[in-house]
Design a protein around this nucleic acid. Structure first.
Lengths: 116, 116
DNA sequence: AGCGCACGCTACATATTCTGTAGCAAGGAC
DNA sequence: GTCCTTGCTACAGAATATGTAGCGTGCGCT
C-alpha cells in the first residue's frame, strides 16, 4: 500500500468518514458522492452486475486507479459487493440508495430542456 | 481569466457538459455532482440563502478558489443564483432538485446504523 | 468628504487527486 | 502445458484542490 491514508482529507480522523467532522452521516454521504466516479459507478450498476472491466468501459474508460479506489470505498460503505464471477453489484442497501437516486433521471431530462 | 477551459475534462467539447459524451443529461448531472463541494453547497442552501462567506464557513472553510468555481458552475446549471444582499440561494429548479436529494438525510441515518 | 467593514471574487505556490499506459498474479477453459 | 479474462497495482505526468493573502466595490457611518 503506497499511500498511507491522505493526511489532509482525513484531517479529523476519529470520525467515521472524511467530511463528517460533525459526525452527521449525511455529510459523509455527500462527501463520498463528491468524489469522481462514485455516483457514476452506482448508476451504471443500477440494472445489472458487471465485471470491473466492463464497469470501466461503462464509465468512459476511467482510469483503473481511481476506479478501484472508488470500488473499495463503495464496498467499505456497504453499497456494492464483489461476487465472482458476476463481478460487482449492488448490495441490499445499495439498491435502497439507488431507489432514491433514480428520480434524478427524469429530473435531468426536464433540466436539460429548461436551460437555453 | 487565467484558466482557458480545462483541456482534458472538456475533451469532447460540443456536448453540453463534461461527462455527457452521450448527450444524456443524467450523465452531466452525475458528473457535476461528482466534483468536490457541489452537493454540499446545494445541501447547505436547502433552508436559507447565504453570503459567499457564510457559505464557505458552512462548508468547513473550503478553499474559496474551488468554492467559487462550483458556484459558477451551479449558477450556469441554473440551480443557484446570487441575489444581493442576501447572497446565494436556490433557484426554482434548485429547490426542485433539493426535493429529490432531501430523502438522503434519513437514508444516511439508517446507513450509519447498519454498518458495524 | 473620510473611514471602516463586509461583500464577491481572484492570485499563486503548494499539496492532493486523477489520468493513461503498462503490467502483475490468480483462476478457468482448453 | 498455453491462452484468455479476471481484479488489481505501479508510476509518471496532468488536472484539480488547498490555504493564505489580497483586490475592488459598495454600504453605512461620522
Amino acid at each position: 500500500m503506497p499511500k498511507p491514508a491522505s493526511p489532509i482529507r482525513n484531517k479529523p480522523r476519529g470520525g467515521p468518514v472524511r467530511g463528517s467532522r460533525t459526525g452527521r452521516p449525511i455529510m459523509a454521504l455527500l462527501d463520498l458522492f463528491g468524489r469522481r466516479w462514485s455516483l457514476r459507478i452506482l448508476w451504471e450498476l443500477r440494472e445489472r452486475s458487471m465485471t470491473s472491466r466492463t464497469l470501466r468501459a461503462a464509465c468512459d474508460e476511467a482510469s483503473p486507479t481511481v476506479l478501484n479506489e472508488r470500488l473499495k470505498e463503495l464496498r467499505a460503505a456497504g453499497f456494492i459487493e464483489l461476487i465472482p464471477p458476476g463481478g460487482y453489484g449492488l448490495t441490499e442497501m445499495g439498491r435502497e440508495l439507488l431507489g432514491l437516486l433514480l428520480p434524478l433521471h427524469r429530473f435531468a431530462e426536464r433540466w436539460e430542456k429548461e436551460r437555453s
